[in-house]
């Protein structure tokens, strides 16, 4: 576990400056046009005013619960699917890869809407409500948003791991292990998977940023009381604070991840030398 405080401060500084610039720019270009009755630390939904503090913490916790459960679900699903795929014959693998490319190009909005509509359709047709499709009376829903948010990362991670797996299977150590008479299942589980996990770690940034953007659409369509919804409805100083609340924990995560992937790369270079 590497963590250098100095470089983190540098990253923190640039993040804060960037968010500050972004929150000031709209007012700079088009003038300040918040309604007069709206106070700085308030936001309105359907004409009703709410206070930003301490609402934002509850919302943040709720959003992050959904975010990380979806991430874990996606990761697990991707790994299990990859494992199953490697045991399939070659031509089926190619078919699956093609289907993944097709699925990958679906916009997030499309997936969210289709899932919501299909749950309602199932309810209408059979009377079985698979999961609640919208927040009613501050009663938070979890199952459907998590599943929806997990769909696209699963597809992406599945594709990445499949590619990595293909690369990894031609490496000498796998051939040696095969020659030693070890089973394909054993090699994949015991050796290949471990190496893939470290390589997979390098894609953390793409996945995280992509998922944050998806989280916003999921929150909007399912009408969740999440933190992204707050980000959309606040302006100026309140926007700045909300954005910082989202950004700070993630920047710590990114810093740790970046340091550790760097050390992995260095180790690889040392090995090569």
């Amino acid at each position: 576990m590497n963590f250098s405080f100095h470089s983190y401060l540098k990253r923190l500084r640039s993040t804060v400056i960037g968010i500050l610039i972004i929150s000031v720019l709209p007012a700079l270009f088009f003038g300040i046009n918040t309604k007069l009755e709206q106070k700085v630390w308030q936001y309105s939904i359907n004409g009703i005013m709410y206070d930003v503090f301490p609402d934002v913490f509850d919302r943040y916790m709720y959003s992050m619960t959904i975010f990380f459960s979806a991430l874990l679900t996606g990761l697990l699903a991707a790994l299990v699917l990859t494992f199953i795929t490697t045991l399939l014959p070659k031509f089926l693998q190619r078919v699956i890869y093609g289907v993944l490319t097709l699925l990958e190009s679906l916009p997030d909005l499309f997936i969210v809407v289709v899932l919501q509509v299909s749950v309602i359709y199932i309810y209408k047709a059979t009377g079985i409500l698979v999961a609640n499709v919208s927040n009613v009376y501050n009663n938070p829903i979890y199952l459907l948003p998590i599943l929806t948010l997990a769909v696209l990362p699963t597809i992406q991670l599945f594709k990445i791991t499949l590619l990595l797996m293909k690369e990894e299977q031609h490496k000498p150590y796998v051939t040696v292990a095969r020659a030693m008479g070890l089973g394909r299942l054993y090699i994949t589980l015991k050796h290949v998977f471990r190496n893939i996990l470290t390589s997979l770690f390098q894609y953390y940034k793409t996945i995280f940023v992509f998922m944050l953007s998806n989280l916003f659409i999921v929150e909007y369509v399912f009408n969740l009381n999440g933190v992204m919804f707050l980000l959309l409805n606040t302006q100026g100083a309140a926007f700045l604070v909300t954005a910082l609340i989202i950004a700070l924990p993630f920047s710590v995560l990114f810093e740790i991840a970046e340091n550790n992937t760097a050390s992995v790369d260095e180790r690889k270079e040392e090995d090569a030398a």
Binding site: R11, S14, T15, I17, G18, I19, I21, I22, L25, P26, A27, F29, F30, G31, N33, K205, V209, L212, S213, L215, F216, I217, M228, L231, L232, Q235, F239, A243, I246, A247, F250, S251, F254
Partner: peptide, 21 residues
Amino acid sequence: DIVQATLYIPTAILAYLFMNA
């Protein structure tokens, strides 16, 4: 700096801020 910040703010929200103003 701006690129660092936009990692955490979805593009749609960013566009919405400007468009709404």
